[in-house]
């Protein structure tokens, strides 16, 4: 393999808040190989969306600012590209699907118009050819009667159909990397399953890589090859998906796995991780997870652990990695 398609190294993102500048993403490293699906998992506020927006250089500025690190895509550092060149990457090489299909499509333009726009811009197609392409991708994502549907407005689509249309829009220019930011969270469960299945099959058919952002480990198990777990702005564990579920190497991951509902286990309340994630301007000293960690010792309160490899591409940010025995889900 010729190295990763996307390679994030030591990314830092700061935000200006009422409390001054705070670092919301600290030293995040992440890579996605061509054709690979990597899950980025974490609670709300863990920095996963900001990380993905950084790849597109769409972190709202102000108040956000990328203050360090590099994001290499196919060897080029996206953070140093001029804006004009970056626009050629957005939507063309890297495309994004957002969580809220209701609000992420423009209500004032037809679905076809919104797809054709990207195609005309990047591929230089004429109006008619761009609309044909729009029909083609709508068909690809399983929208019935795409020839009629291109002229419809977002409000005339159901939630699931809108998300399919948003996926079609992202795929229209055949990107090499698709970033899907909680693409199924706003959908109801049966539609979620359909959209996931669609993404998985498209990813295989088109051979594109995917960075899949979610807070739902069940979804991760379904679609991902590798997983990065984020907590409080840091990556705390990186592992192959099977490894992660069988042998988690970070207490936070163990907590997440335990709090997943499981079939066949009845009558017991779901396990939870006690406490709340820390606020970005009040990060605990030492390991950021220690106030909620059942295994924390005094060492955890003072020493900040580094992301270290346990072996076989399995990384964890835990001081007691070698001492504790964690249980997986399988």
């Amino acid at each position: 393999m010729a190295g990763p398609l996307l390679d994030i190294e030591g990314l830092n993102v700061d935000f200006l808040t009422d409390q001054g500048w705070v670092t919301v993403v600290r030293d995040v490293s992440l890579s996605v190989a061509p054709g690979e699906t990597v899950g980025l998992v974490g609670e709300s506020g863990s920095g996963k969306t900001i990380t993905s927006l950084s790849v597109m250089r769409l972190v709202p500025d102000p108040p956000g600012r990328i203050t360090g690190g590099s994001i290499r895509f196919d060897g080029r550092d996206l953070l140093t590209l001029p804006e004009r060149a970056m626009r050629q990457v957005r939507g063309n090489d890297i495309a994004m699907v957002f969580q809220e299909s209701m609000t992420s499509l423009n209500p004032a333009f037809t679905i076809g118009d919104q797809i054709a726009e990207a195609v005309r811009h990047h591929l230089g197609l004429g109006r008619r050819a761009a609309v044909d392409r729009a029909v083609e991708v709508l068909d690809l994502v399983g929208i019935p009667a795409p020839r009629d549907r291109v002229d419809h407005y977002p409000h005339e689509f159901s939630g699931g159909m809108r998300q399919r249309a948003a996926i079609a829009m992202a795929l229209a220019c055949e990107p090499r990397l698709l970033i899907a930011d909680e693409p199924t969270t706003a959908l109801d469960v049966t539609v979620q399953a359909q959209v996931l299945e669609l993404l998985r099959s498209l990813q295989q058919r088109l051979g594109m890589a995917m960075l899949f952002i979610t807070h739902n480990l069940g979804v991760v198990a379904d679609v991902c090859d590798r997983v990065s777990v984020m907590y409080a702005g840091q990556v705390v564990e990186v592992a192959d998906v099977v490894d992660l579920f069988e042998a988690p190497a970070h207490p936070y991951t163990e907590g997440l796995l335990r709090s997943m509902p499981q079939l066949g286990v009845r009558g017991e309340p779901l396990a939870t991780i006690p406490g709340n994630p820390p606020l970005p301007w009040a990060m605990p000293e030492g390991c950021r997870f220690h106030p909620r960690c059942p295994y924390a010792t005094d060492a955890c309160r003072s020493g900040a652990p580094a992301l270290t490899e346990r072996g076989g591409g399995h990384f964890s940010r835990c001081l007691r990695l070698a001492e504790i025995e964690l249980t997986g889900a399988v």
Binding site: Q88, M96, N106
Partner: peptide
């Protein structure tokens, strides 16, 4: 601040198209 403006940017449209087309019409 709307999501669809972010979507328009994510498509790689020039800022002018984002503001004059996508934002203004709304």
């Amino acid at each position: 601040d709307q999501d669809y403006v972010r979507t328009a940017r994510a498509k790689g449209l020039p800022e002018r198209a984002v503001t004059v087309k996508h934002a203004f019409k709304n």
